[in-house]
Design a protein around this nucleic acid. Structure first.
Length: 413
DNA sequence: TGTCCACTGGAAGGGAGGGCTT
DNA sequence: AAGCCCTCCCTTCCAGTGGACA
């Protein structure tokens, strides 16, 4: 072999920005110490300590905005329970994210299978009645004298999507158990979701309540310094980098997740451009990159019908029709369907898709009345149409409509 | 003050698709 | 194979509504 260098060579410098494990800068990494969450950890520990004595701890509801350390704290507690468990009574700790598992059946199925070792006896992911899954689950849990702590992250998603039946069952299950005891920890970033709960569930679940306050810029700095020390080589950070990441994230309601993402992406950008240090300019670029990635990822994963709706809105925008009504969006959408040979959905359904796009932050829609002109939504996109059309145009189904021009003259100009 | 427009958004239910049970 | 169950996506139906206009 004469040629020693490969295309990867320039990117495999001996001394880089990162130490070995860059996962440490991801929000999902749980460090051995959680800065500025000692109070919350102690409070939770005081509640859950009863489990180690074989008593059922109170159910807990935890509130706090995104990136306030709720998930990290609960996972940390989970680890600690497992560490302490050896010395005390048997405690099982289960963590579940209800954004992923968002149906009644799903939750019960997931919990149940944690307690079934024999593969052949496992609960299938569909096919059984919910009641049957519940009965098996109860039976399997009750074979041992133990305490089971179930943490349901993003519990509000479960309630909004599938109601509170499963929570009713889980909070009442102790009445049906002879040996085991179950307690539930609900985690939510939405303070209002309890309004949608049956009063019995609400009081059962909220035996203890905790609120995680947002981090301020100083606290975010501490978190970043701690992680940077673990994940990055010494002296690779320009002085202002961490304060800038912290300040930007503090503006967004003290979101530690955002702060960590900023630092990690800034470090990656600096590494890729083969610089020796991470500079403030890298943080600014990281900020733009994160925002853009987030939006294009959301667009790429949309169902085809939603893509058509969004494409229609962007095309109108390109023609100067910035603000549209539901009716106008629907007209353009129907044209695009015909051109792409995709089945046309009803306007009622499109109303829902528009609301979903609004929730994703891709468009902005608000109900407005035009008097005799009727009451409808006023819709505009929240993304630059050039960028949006580029990403959506990558979908082979939408490829050949790229040059279509909507016929509508907006009435809302 | 009442009318009327163009929807909004809730409710109910159909049907397809996953899979289990008998 | 027939009869279930659960979820998802969608349709149909329809009462309700904010505000310009007569």
């Amino acid at each position: 072999m004469e040629q020693q260098t490969t295309v990867f060579q320039p990117y495999l410098q001996v001394k880089g920005i990162f130490k070995k494990d860059r996962e440490i800068l991801r929000p999902s990494y749980i460090p051995d110490e959680l800065p500025h969450r000692g109070e919350q950890i102690n409070h939770l520990a005081s509640i859950l300590a009863t489990a180690l004595n074989g008593q059922r701890p109170s159910n807990v509801l935890i509130f706090g905005k995104t990136g306030t350390g709720k998930t990290a704290t609960i996972k940390y507690i989970g680890k600690e329970i497992q560490r302490a468990e050896a010395k005390y009574k048997r405690v099982d700790f289960l963590y579940m994210n209800c954004e992923v598992v968002d149906t009644q059946y799903g939750v019960l199925h997931n919990i149940g299978n944690q307690f079934i070792d024999d593969f052949n006896e496992r609960i299938p992911f569909t096919g059984w009645s919910t009641e049957r899954v519940y009965n098996i689950l109860r039976e399997k849990i009750d074979v041992n004298d133990r305490v089971i702590v179930i943490a349901l992250d993003e519990i509000d998603k479960l309630v909004y999507k599938s109601g509170d039946d499963v929570l009713y069952h889980l909070t009442r299950i102790n009445d049906d158990l002879e040996n085991a005891k179950v307690s539930v920890i609900g985690i939510s970033n939405d303070l209002k979701f309890t309004e949608f709960l049956d009063p019995r569930v609400r009081s059962a679940l909220g035996e203890e309540k905790m609120v995680f306050p947002p981090y301020n810029a100083e606290q975010l700095k501490d978190i970043l310094y701690q992680r940077a020390k673990l994940a990055l080589e010494d002296n690779v950070l320009d002085e202002g980098v961490i304060p800038l990441c912290a300040a930007l994230a503090a503006q967004e309601h003290g979101d530690a997740r955002r702060a960590l993402d900023l630092l990690r992406v800034a470090a990656e950008i600096s590494e890729r451009s083969k610089e020796e240090k991470v500079l403030e300019s890298h943080v600014t670029r990281a900020k733009n990159k994160i925002e853009l990635d987030c939006v294009s990822e959301a667009m790429k994963t949309l169902p085809t019908q939603s893509k058509l709706v969004l494409m229609g809105i962007l095309m109108n925008e390109e023609q100067g029709n910035a603000r549209l009504t539901t009716g106008e969006v629907y007209e353009t959408y129907k044209d695009l369907c015909r051109l792409t040979n995709i089945a046309v959905l009803t306007q009622r359904r499109i109303t829902d898709l528009i609301s979903e796009l609004d929730m994703l932050g891709l468009i902005h829609a608000r109900v407005k009345s035009f008097g005799r002109g009727g009451r409808t939504k006023e819709i505009e996109s929240s993304i630059p149409y050039i960028e949006g059309k580029r990403v959506l145009g990558d979908d082979p189904l939408l490829e050949h409509i790229r040059n279509y021009k909507p016929r509508i003259q907006s009435t809302l100009m």
